[in-house]
């Protein structure tokens, strides 16, 4: 049992990491990864929703009638998404502004619904927690990695909790390499596709097993 919890947790980090291996949830992946701050924020918000909905769906899996299960999942997920949205609006307003419409869109993120349907509705609470955390963290890491690449190349900075949220650490490459000129293409929409494609390609060079 212990081994399988670890397994369920770690599979999301590498073997089934959502955007790269499962190629799921690409909308936020492409939309918000213009800075690490956004990527992390989006990832953590999704993780929270994923974790909570996994727990709840798993708890209620015996109660929910199978005919209306999708409706129930959507209610559960939507509730948590609104919670995230409201909390973010109250405590991380700039992040809320940049993520904008992508926060409500977590409701239809196929990772969340997919895990609820494919995993949480069939497994116990502990396993579902492990699964939700693993997939969520994998998603967060992927977003962070993608947004790091895009931000470094496209803006020359790494913004983790940057201004105006907190006057936090912004690593600016321009200080180290004065000759560096950011490649703005990377933070534009087509750059997201190209960058994701190249990263997918890199991931495929490494066998998944």
């Amino acid at each position: 049992m212990a081994k399988s919890i670890v397994q369920e947790f770690t599979k999301g980090l590498w073997k089934e990491v959502p955007p790269f291996r499962l190629v799921l949830g690409l909308c936020p992946v492409l939309g918000v990864t213009t800075s690490v701050q956004n990527g992390l924020g989006m990832g953590l918000a999704t993780t929270f929703v994923l974790l909570c909905s996994n727990i709840l769906v798993s708890t209620l899996r015996k109660v929910i009638p199978s005919k209306v299960r999708i409706a129930c999942y959507i209610i559960i997920i939507a509730t948590f998404v609104i919670v995230v949205e409201q909390v973010m609006k109250a405590f991380a307003f700039p992040l809320y502004q940049t993520l904008g419409v992508f926060i409500p869109l977590i409701v239809v993120n196929c990772i969340v619904l997919g895990r609820a349907e494919a995993f949480a509705s069939k497994n116990g609470i502990i396993l579902s927690i492990a699964d939700g955390l693993g997939i969520g963290l994998g998603f967060t890491c992927s977003l962070a990695a993608l947004s790091a690449v895009r931000e470094i190349i496209g803006k020359g900075t790494i913004t983790i909790w940057g201004a105006p949220l907190f006057e936090g650490p912004i690593v600016n490459i321009a200080h180290t390499f004065p000759d560096f000129v950011p490649f703005e293409f990377m933070v534009q929409a087509p750059g997201a596709f190209v960058c994701l494609g190249l990263m997918l390609c890199m991931m495929n060079l490494v066998p998944s097993k």
Binding site: V181, P182, E184, F185, M186
Partner: peptide, 10 residues
Amino acid sequence: AILSVAWKTF
């Protein structure tokens, strides 16, 4: 095209 959009001045 990609480069001239990204690095106009160059």
